[in-house]
Design a protein around this nucleic acid. Structure first.
Lengths: 227, 227
DNA sequence: CCTGTCTGAACCAGATATGGACCAATTATC
DNA sequence: GATAATTGGTCCATATCTGGTTCAGACAGG
């Protein structure tokens, strides 16, 4: 039975914090008292507090105590939960902010092999006949541009956007807007981006990406797909 | 009839998992307890769990236990893990991409009350003497600009950035770079942003935000804080 | 007899918990 | 101002809990 005690303590503390138990003076009981209260060793309580404090919800000060931060930080899980309900309009707006800059950064920062990898994804997408295969390589193309930007965090944010993009509702929207003619148009725009990247022309890459996203947005939100 | 015992255990376990018996903490009883509960040898229980785990429904961790694998998709978990290790340089690069655009959008999209709320956060930050209070209002100031952009997804992405910003390591970096003189400089730059927003001047808001982030980045990455 | 399953047991290695000690910074007390 | 008490920070040796592995033997069915 007595196993993963610190996880239990952690859960209990989180609950009590959320319940406002110590909001009066923003101060938690000291570690020794908490350990006694829970009937566990101090190190166990410390492990639990460590995990909560790592997320920024608590501040510890030697000789003073452990304190609540005034504003509780948003929980990542909750954020992700909200992300699932994001509208396609918002999605394209954010892509319109991130991707042109990512392309510009990739033009200057990407290694030669990264550029090759981007070009390869473009080639594979161009060769794809079916929508599924095209979608996959299109996703890889954009992903690799983010990788080429050499900004890790930017890459992670795009991972999150990809999660949204792969959700059912989004997939349906994409399917409705898909047509062979549009696929060809996308490939031509991709080619322009690749060319700009290869020439290390940041401004051109940014502009080409912006034009591409404009096209995608226009197609996504038009009433029906062209025949 | 000692036959098909492990199959029975397997079926029972599957049923209990599906029934949500252990969803509270995602954790199954340990193998020895399960064996005792079913009146069976531990090896038998292990064989049953082996088959369930092979399908990916369970994860076993030596020394910890056997857990249900249902929570977040694995790629999401990976993203969460990576987010905690992001470098400050990356962080500022991404802020430099997102925030000026958010400011521009807020200049055109924010409601009057949202603008008031932004101005209020600026005023509170200006009035704050201690670093902690200033940090809090500074965070609120930037957060409210994202809210004013009226792009939900942008707001969520900033939540994620805030999460990183509230982590221990990041807090230490900020503390090192903090000084009263710099706080005053930040407040002056905030004032310029607020003025541009109030005048609904998207271009000026974007430029003011960009200048502000440049200052912040320069201060963060300089060797030491000014006296 | 041979095969497959279950039993009961032992031991391993990794993760966690314990109980204690000492340190360093802060605060209260004299 | 000196001293003591309080509090978080760090470390350690030890114990316990957990899944991982192996083995010898029992037993049923072909």
């Amino acid at each position: 039975m007595p196993k993963l005690v610190s996880a239990d303590v952690e859960a209990s503390l989180r609950q009590r914090i959320a319940g406002g138990e110590w909001q009066a003076d923003n101060r938690l009981p000291n570690e020794r008292d908490l350990a006694a209260e829970y009937g566990v060793a101090r190190n166990t309580v410390r492990a639990a507090i460590d995990r909560i404090a790592a997320e920024g919800g608590l501040v510890r000060e030697v000789g003073r105590g452990t304190f609540l931060k005034q504003a509780a930080p948003p929980d990542l899980r909750a954020i992700i939960g909200k992300l699932t309900g994001v509208s396609p309009i918002d999605m394209m707006a954010v892509r319109g902010i991130l991707e042109p800059r990512a392309a510009a950064l990739a033009a200057t920062n990407a290694s030669a092999s990264e550029l090759d990898s981007i070009a390869a994804a473009h080639a594979a997408a161009s060769a794809a006949e079916e929508m599924e295969a095209f979608e996959q390589w299109d996703g890889a193309f954009h992903q690799r541009i983010f990788t080429g930007s050499r900004i890790e965090l930017l890459n992670y944010l795009h991972d999150i956007l990809l999660l949204i993009r792969n959700q059912d509702l989004w997939v349906q929207i994409k399917r409705r807007s898909f047509s062979p003619a549009r696929r060809l148009a996308y490939c031509a725009e991709h080619a322009a981006i690749v060319q700009a990247l290869m020439q290390r022309d940041a401004g051109a890459a940014e502009a080409a990406m912006r034009a591409h996203l404009d096209t995608v947005a226009r197609n996504l939100f038009s009433v029906s797909a062209a025949p």
